[in-house]
Design a protein around this nucleic acid. Structure first.
Length: 221
DNA sequence: GACCAGGCACATC
DNA sequence: GATGTGCATGGT
């Protein structure tokens, strides 16, 4: 049963790594900013960008909505793709102010599936970013899938090589209790595992999941 | 110097 | 629908 395997993986990861205390952000808004800035980017680079914004007291929707995009881009430069991400942050804020009066609280009444579709309508917010915002900033019961998640699942033969995002997400959502705290911790633990052991060049002999059945596909990234 | 990092949009076939 | 490319900094 897949559910049992997923629970076993979770238990081993939690025993090995302990709680990850995600998301590493102080406010809902900071989590959203971090979710956009961390796209294909090391978190330590994102921290530098967020520190710049904090120093300038810009970590609130109104301030970021008002700042010039060129100035924003310069501040988030350490996060990489900085011109692109400045535009993406602006796209989110334009949506928040034009559709929801700039208040994150205004999102609370919107059903999760509808809110997800709205977020995906913002240019620069794809599935992982939307789901990270939903789970980690807005406490919605959504499982976040990222590169590590797919890689760990594939190497443990829990998905097929051609599984898409929604299929992987559905694997977790259909086989686990729908629990925000579980989804939060599980995804964070998968990222932690991925960073340390399940990189493109795996370190299976040292991995806490080493004894579980799995196969490495040499050709898979 | 090469490789990698908590993606996404868009062009082209 | 699948596949390729641009976007960019900073750590290992």
């Amino acid at each position: 049963m897949v559910g049992e395997q997923l629970k076993t993986i979770y238990q081993r990861l939690f025993e090995y790594f302990g709680p990850q205390h995600w998301w590493p952000g102080r406010t809902q808004f900071e989590i959203i900013v971090g979710a956009i800035l961390t796209q294909n980017t090391n978190w330590t680079n994102v921290e530098k960008a967020i520190a710049n914004l904090r120093r300038r007291r810009l970590l609130e929707p109104l301030k970021l909505h008002e700042i010039e995009i060129e100035e924003l881009a310069a501040l988030i430069r350490p996060a990489g793709y900085y011109r692109l991400k400045a535009r993406r942050l602006k796209n989110f804020l334009d949506w928040l102010f034009e559709k929801h009066t700039g208040q994150l609280d205004g999102l609370n009444d919107i059903p999760t599936d509808l809110l997800r579709r709205q977020l995906l309508g913002i240019k620069g917010i794809g599935r992982e970013t939307a789901d990270s915002i939903l789970l980690y900033a807005l406490d919605r019961v959504i499982f976040v899938v990222d590169t590590y998640t797919a890689r760990v699942m594939l190497r443990h033969r829990l998905i097929d090589t051609d599984a898409d995002y929604e299929q992987i997400q559905d694997l977790f959502q259909s086989n686990l209790d729908e629990d925000v705290r579980l989804f939060n911790e599980y995804h964070a633990l998968l990222v932690r595992l991925g960073k340390q052991f399940c990189r493109p060049k795996p370190k299976c002999s040292e991995c806490p999941l080493n004894l579980l059945p799995h196969t490495i596909e040499a050709e898979y990234p």
